[in-house]
Design a protein around this nucleic acid. Structure first.
Lengths: 187, 187
DNA sequence: CCGGCTTTTCAGATGTTATTGAAATGACTA
DNA sequence: TAGTCATTTCAATAACATCTGAAAAGCCGG
């Protein structure tokens, strides 16, 4: 349609954006390709189908399919369709804060929550139980006490983070206003 | 010294803490071992030398050395020494918020800053320059305009994040108070 | 400046994760 | 139902990250 063949600058800017985003994603434990697919959809703003994406990023069909599905799971890409075309098209969430909230939500769910669960279990191993146990030296009791203090410090911290993230993640542009507030507050 | 051979519960709690932390670290793009070494030092609270750590975590000398050095670089572990012992001992930062600040600082430096730099460069590719270019259709101009809008949205967002993280990272227990404030504010 | 002890380095082995491509599955039409 | 086109799956493979262990480099007291 619009873009002619020698439309260099825009194309290059898009490609470099895709690379930069892919790099960042990789550092975050998101597969490079998945991040690149998202970047491409975001920066072009155009609905694209699997073949468009394969061609543009030079990746296999399987890879494109997997990445798109994962992006759908994360809720940062939506399906759409074109009349008279059987292919599925995809578009990226355009609001950056919404995007960010989706990412935080997903990462908390996958990485922090399981650790929190583990820590609670671990806490049980050395709670009241240990005092019931047979003859234990004063030193050992002290060691357990300090262990529990450290464990609790970590637990408290992660729970605070959890709550904080829920504020940011909560629906509506709450996160933005909060960030602005915080930045304003502390001068 | 204190811990006798059948002191099971504490030891198991420590081991499980180490695993849980290692898992979390892995998800964050920190090598599992590096996270485990830190977890061990944190949860025991004891200064340990390289051999202690090798034995306890069953890792090679090289791996232990590398991980410890990385933790020192991150500023979350300190060297210490024992009189009459030539070995180096290591201890973990015990304040969880300080630990967290170190991590955020490091990750921003390594992952966000480079991307921001790239985005600024990319922005230049399609700034004023593009209007100078020869005959360009109205459609193309429009495309470039929208591209710039999206790019700027991302830039703004990352810059806000950067500033936010600097608040949290700033010396003294500022971060803690901020978090408390935010949690309090929105009920 | 030698000998013993400690830490660091790094090439190769090992383990993990991402990607491909072709076959299976699904979805729709006639 | 068979035929066409699109999508998903998954075993094989490639790419990447991590770990080992032995050799090299540092450090120190005598």
């Amino acid at each position: 349609m619009s873009t002619t063949h020698h439309q260099g600058a825009l194309r290059e800017a898009q490609d470099r954006f895709v690379s930069a985003w892919g790099q960042m994603g990789a550092a975050w434990g998101i597969s490079r390709t998945m991040a690149e697919v998202h970047a491409l959809l975001y920066i072009t703003g155009q609905p694209m189908n699997t073949d468009d994406i394969m061609d543009r990023l030079q990746i296999s069909r399987g890879n494109a399919s997997m990445s798109l599905r994962a992006l759908l799971d994360w809720g940062v890409v939506q399906r759409s369709h074109k009349r008279g075309d059987r292919k599925e098209y995809f578009t990226a969430e355009q609001d950056v804060w919404t995007l960010f909230r989706a990412i935080v939500r997903e990462r908390m769910k996958r990485e922090v929550d399981p650790v929190l669960a583990s820590l609670f279990e671990i806490r049980d191993l050395t709670s009241v139980e240990s005092s019931r146990k047979s003859a234990i030296s004063a030193d050992d009791k002290q060691a357990v006490l300090e262990h529990n203090r450290r464990l609790d410090a970590m637990l408290d911290f992660l729970q605070t983070m959890e709550k904080l993230s829920q504020r940011f993640v909560s629906p509506s542009g709450r996160g933005l206003r909060l960030a602005a507030t915080v930045l304003g507050k502390v001068s």
